[in-house]
């Protein structure tokens, strides 16, 4: 059972990783908590469902979910972030909350509040190895997460674009002096973040095969905890923190009691914040945290 629970925890952790990265891209670079990410995740799920129901292959569905969520993220950036870029961070946080309310309502009106379900598991193949059994979709989730994180890390660490992003993250004014134009970059950061949330939505939607307009709410809060544990400044941090929290949750359920699970997760987050405010891998600059 232990091994099976590890598989469960890693799948959940991979999902957390993607959404946490989505939060941390905007948080690390712009210092903004985009509360609409939970709903971008939900939208990604619906877009992915629509694509699969239209008999499109999984990679196309994944791209559709990513593109759809990225587009909505772009709108959020233009209307909900750009006008507030020099306001205290609480203001853009609340404007993204406005988007979150709108997106939940719109999704309810389009797809209904009942869970939308795939007729049967589309990717139902299972692999069994001794006592452990994993579905094709679970392996896809873990694989896709690793690939997406690696891709993101490459972009941020190795390319000119990534350097510019990091420059803006470090100091917006200096970056401007160096000729980096921040406007298009923040748009890009939001869209990348949206694409990640969308990808997570597609993968999760297809794995659990039932989604509602409210699936983002709980998982979004958990992903914030994962982001904090991993540290907002390091991309690889989320890749460690996601599975860590995922496994911690699953193990609490398996060996402690499922009731205290949330207590454990948020407790862990607070402990990490107090002991290593920079996150497990470091990198965040809490000592000069942005003004609220």
């Amino acid at each position: 059972m232990l091994l099976q629970q590890l598989v469960n925890g890693l799948t959940l952790g991979a999902v957390y990783t993607l959404i946490a990265l989505s939060f941390s891209l905007v948080m690390g670079i712009l210092g903004v908590l985009n509360l609409a990410i939970a709903e971008l995740f939900m939208l990604g799920g619906y877009f992915g469902f629509a694509a699969i129901l239209a008999k499109l292959p999984l990679p196309v569905a994944l791209l559709a979910g990513m593109a759809g969520a990225a587009l909505v993220a772009a709108v959020i950036e233009r209307v909900g972030y750009q006008p507030f870029r020099d306001a205290p961070v609480v203001t853009p946080m609340l404007s993204t909350l406005g988007f979150s309310i709108i997106l939940q309502n719109v999704a309810t009106n389009i797809w209904g509040s009942d869970p939308l379900q795939l007729p049967d598991e589309v990717f139902g193949a299972r692999f069994t190895l001794g006592p452990v059994s994993a579905s094709a979709m679970q392996l896809t989730i873990v694989g896709a997460t690793v690939v997406l994180v690696a891709l993101l890390a490459f972009v941020v660490q190795r390319t000119a674009l990534g350097r510019a992003l990091r420059a803006v993250a470090e100091n917006r004014d200096v970056a401007r002096l160096l000729g980096v134009s921040a406007g298009p970059l923040t748009l890009l950061a939001f869209m990348l973040s949206g694409a990640l949330a969308g990808a997570a939505g597609v993968l999760i939607g297809l794995h659990y095969a039932a989604i509602t307009p409210y699936i983002g709410v709980e998982i979004g809060l958990k992903a914030i905890a994962v982001m904090v544990v991993g540290g907002t400044g390091r991309i690889w941090g989320a890749l460690i923190a996601g599975p860590l929290i995922g496994v911690a949750e699953v193990m609490t359920t398996a060996y402690g009691g499922s009731q205290i699970r949330d207590f454990v997760v948020y407790g862990l987050m607070i402990v990490i914040l107090l002991l290593r405010p920079q996150g497990l891998l470091g990198g965040a600059r809490t000592e000069q945290g942005p003004r609220v």
Partner: peptide, 18 residues
Amino acid sequence: DPLSFNTGDLDVSAQVTK
């Protein structure tokens, strides 16, 4: 050892495995 989850949870795999 009561098994529970919370409204809005997507993942109940650990509970079901148990």
